[in-house]
Simulated assay, not measured.
Amino acid sequence: MDINSINNNIANLNNSSSLQLEKSTSSSKVSNTSKDALNLSINEYNKKRDELSLSVQSLNNGIGMTNVAQNAIEKQQNNLTNIQNKLEIIDTFENKNDIKQSINDELRSFNQIAYETKYNKESLLTMDYYDDKNTIDINTKTSNFSIEKPNTAAIANEIFETVNNSNLNDTNALNEVVTKVDNSVNQLQNIYDNFTELGNKLEINAKETIQEQVTLFTENKINKNKDFQKDSADFSKTNITSNMGYLAASQANIVQEQSVRLLS
């Protein structure tokens, strides 16, 4: 092996080392860019996760509200059913007007339920002059739900006026009271159905939102695994490159030793 060949090998080795240094610098820039992208992805994930959590919380509150309202309405329906039963046996009274007090007791219970039914301090079954909201609203980041706020207390008040302003010994007046109570039963059932429909919509949306949470979590977990695999691969590549460098250095030392022998 001549001196020129040795010098060429050493020069090639130096060029390879410079090229490797340039690759390392370039790799560092890519790593920084990837890190910035990863931070952005984490921020987006956290933002989406928080939005979904707030949506689920709002939907759960809405479902709880509909359940409270439905339970209260069921009790009011029992009051009206009791009134209907009393009117069915009114012929057993010598003076049919004597039944009014018993009906009024049911109406007082009905109204008490109406005024006491609240969720998060919001009245669900009554409205008054000072109430500035005539709807019940449940809002999320992507969906809005609303129904007209009922005033079941008005139902009881109308029955009370009809009953107490009528002579129940008169057949026509009695029939008018019976009809009024029957219509009130239907009216109350419609209110119950509105809450049922709202509750069903909220439950469907809640299930979809929870599924979206699960999907988001799964995708984030997969991305983390991908990043780990990438880091592991990068680490392995770095080790391989380093070993190649050590090998090249060893070869250079061998060449230098041979050159010294030739020159000595």
Rank of each mutant, 00 (worst) to 15 (best):
N46K: 15
D234W: 00
E212A: 15
I155D: 07
N169V: 06
I89L: 08
D234I: 08
N79M: 13
N225F: 09
N95S: 11
V214G: 03
R261S: 13
L198E: 01
I6N: 05
D182N: 15
D132L: 09
T162R: 09
N67S: 11
S53C: 01
S41H: 04
E88I: 07
T92F: 06
I103L: 09
N9G: 06
Q57Y: 13
I136C: 05
G199L: 00
L263A: 11
A114P: 04
S18A: 10
E122I: 15
Y129R: 12
S58N: 14
L107Y: 00
Y119Q: 02
F110N: 02
F110P: 00
S27H: 11
A248D: 14
R108N: 10
F93D: 02
A114Y: 03
I103D: 03
L124F: 01
N8Y: 07
P150G: 06
T66Q: 03
G62F: 00
I42H: 03
T171H: 08
L21E: 13
T218Y: 08
L174R: 10
A114H: 07
F195T: 04
N43I: 15
T66E: 00
N220P: 01
L247M: 09
K47D: 11
T117S: 02
I254M: 09
V214D: 12
N43P: 03
T238Q: 13
T196I: 09
E88C: 00
E122P: 07
T162M: 08
E94S: 14
S102E: 10
K207I: 02
V178L: 09
N253E: 14
G62A: 05
Y129G: 04
V163G: 09
N190F: 12
L247F: 11
N157H: 07
Q84P: 00
K86F: 01
V181E: 00
I240Y: 04
N186K: 14
S236H: 12
D128V: 07
K118A: 00
L52P: 03
K48Y: 01
E122C: 10
M1Y: 10
I89V: 13
M127E: 11
D182Y: 12
N167V: 01
L38I: 10
N78F: 04
Y45M: 08
N165D: 03
E94K: 15
L188Q: 02
S264D: 15
E219T: 13
N144S: 13
I136A: 06
Q76L: 01
L263Q: 13
D132P: 11
T142W: 06
G62L: 02
K221H: 06
N85Y: 08
A249Y: 12
E22V: 13
Y119T: 04
N39T: 11
I210Q: 12
I103V: 10
